[in-house]
Design a protein around this nucleic acid. Structure first.
Lengths: 131, 131
DNA sequence: CTATTGATCAACCGATCGGTTGATTACAAC
DNA sequence: GTTGTAATCAACCGATCGGTTGATCAATAG
């Protein structure tokens, strides 16, 4: 459905979200388009800095811009967000799967009843018996 | 369910994934734990550099480490991955929702179609956009 | 004990990032 | 035209990032 993003594009998209200002901008845009001035209002930084943040988001494919007189409204591009979740979920699910397989192996070896291989989506915390 | 990660933790987690080497490490770990040497093997960079990458992933909460003699196996922590998809999906779904609302308004006004591709995924959770 | 293996620590370097200020473009209103 | 507003461009700065090399720590093997 959504193209798996090329490596460099994933770089830029994840990097774009690795900043609280840009995440807040994305959060704001999820409720509809906004101009740079509107987006800059909640922040204590300069409008130029916000403009740069928007450029980072745009270069990452997370937002697009249109034109309305001298304003340049910014729109969220949800397709890229979806591609990011697709990447993450891919490996998250592989991990879950192999974890369940390991559970089965351990259960078969020991026979003791510490296995829960039912459809509980256990994302259990690894604990170290590292002594 | 999964704790919404604090802002600083989200910073680190997204930043950790904004690097192709670290994403390949995550991909490898999704199939099971591995030592630093094993993880470093596919790359042309030094083992120290890979060790740093792993520290970045660990500090981001994406991996944990145990101990086995002089080896320090690295394990994926899928919970943090899940928290990232949770953050993304939250705003992706809000966006979808407001887009549909806009569609309805425009349809009522003029009957003209918008240029949004119809991604049918009916979700109706009303949420507010925090950070 | 010494030697070897696995991994980290420490210092350093060039590139990029997030921010600033000042100048400039683009458009609208008068 | 001139003024005003929205936004970007350009140069600069300190901090962080990704990489290197060399030394060191931790644990096993001989």
């Amino acid at each position: 459905m959504v193209d798996p993003l090329a490596d460099e594009r994933l770089d830029r998209a994840f990097l774009a979200l690795a900043d609280p200002v840009r995440r807040r901008i994305v959060a704001r845009l999820s409720r509809g388009p906004a101009t740079v001035n509107e987006l800059a209002a909640p922040f204590d930084i300069s409008k130029q800095a916000v403009s740069k943040h928007i450029q980072v988001l745009e270069h990452a494919g997370l937002v697009t811009r249109s034109r309305d007189a001298q304003r340049r409204p910014v729109h969220l591009d949800a397709a890229t967000l979806e591609a990011l979740t697709a990447w993450i979920d891919r490996y998250r699910l592989i991990h879950e799967q192999s974890f369940r397989a390991l559970d089965a192996v351990l259960a078969a070896q020991a026979g003791t009843a510490t296995n829960q291989q039912d459809d509980t989506r256990t994302q259990q915390t690894e604990q170290e018996a590292g002594s």
